Amino acid sequence: MESFSFIMIAFLIISAITVSVIRNLLSAVIIFMVYSLIMAILWQQLHAPDVAITEAAVGAGITTILFVITLKKIRGIKR
């Protein structure tokens, strides 16, 4: 179980760096969603299910939807 946590932390670091350097805004939002889902998994591994559910709902769900809507409104996503 400990090796799983180390793998998740490695993916967390990779996704955080990737969000910082990527140029495409939609790709950055999707990778940020992956970051939030990995955080939710790590919170669950730390036996904090309430924090994990909140991270998944707010971090990966609502925030991603708001970012995508904002990108559409500012024409960041081409149709």
Rank of each mutant, 00 (worst) to 15 (best):
N24W: 00
K78N: 06
K78L: 07
R75K: 15
R75W: 06
Y35D: 11
A56I: 04
T54R: 12
A48W: 11
L66H: 07
M1L: 02
E2N: 13
S3G: 01
I9H: 08
I38Y: 00
S5R: 08
V21Y: 12
L46N: 12
V58Q: 05
I7P: 00
Y35C: 06
I41L: 14
A57H: 06
F67Q: 08
M39N: 10
I31Q: 03
I14K: 02
I31L: 08
G61P: 08
L25M: 10
M33I: 03
T64R: 09
V34H: 01
I30H: 00
A10N: 11
S36W: 04
I14L: 11
I7W: 01
T63K: 15
L46V: 06
A40K: 02
V34W: 02
I30D: 00
A16S: 13
L66T: 14
I22E: 09
A40Q: 02
L26W: 01
F67A: 11
V21K: 14
P49E: 09
E55L: 05
L66N: 08
I53T: 07
Y35G: 05
I22M: 13
H47R: 12
A10H: 11
I14D: 01
F6R: 15
D50M: 12
I53V: 13
T18L: 14
I30A: 06
L37A: 02
Q45M: 11
I38S: 02
L37D: 01
K78Q: 10
M1S: 01
F4C: 07
I31Y: 00
A16N: 04
M8H: 03
I69S: 05
W43G: 07
F67G: 09
G59H: 00
L26A: 12
F32Y: 11
I31T: 07
I9N: 08
L25A: 09
L12I: 07
I17S: 10
E2G: 09
K78G: 03
V19A: 13
E55P: 01
